[in-house]
Amino acid sequence: MRLIYFLALWLASVTVLASENYQFDSPEQEQAYREISSQLRCPKCQNQSIADSDAELSEDLRFIVYQKLKAGDSKQEILDYMQKRYGDFVLYDPPVSPKNYVLWFMPIIVFIIIIASLVKKVGRRELQPEDEVK
């Protein structure tokens, strides 16, 4: 019974995702559409890409992606268009900026500190002869 229930839910979700029927000029264009819409975050429902989201805003944004691809815009042009309007937030791969320096550089800094302190410790130990006696 439970299985049937889940199956029904799954089927329902499949039909929702298939509700838009865009016609693409080429398989590459369709591929680009899928790529771009999964790299854009829905501003309304924050943990979904616009490809996953059923929000009306996502639907509109997907339509813009589709229109722009049809008009010959490149992937970067479309991402820039969205970023200009919705900020870095809309990109799942946001650019490196002072706001996220900590995320980018903290691991490297911590790594250097650990290596430096290890080198210092090990180096000191080697200089102490009593270690060898033991």
Binding site: P43, Q46, Q83, K84, R85, Y86, G87, D88, F89
Partner: peptide, 8 residues
């Protein structure tokens, strides 16, 4: 967290 910056 729902409040987003605007580039505008």
């Amino acid at each position: 967290p729902r409040e987003l910056e605007t580039k505008l």
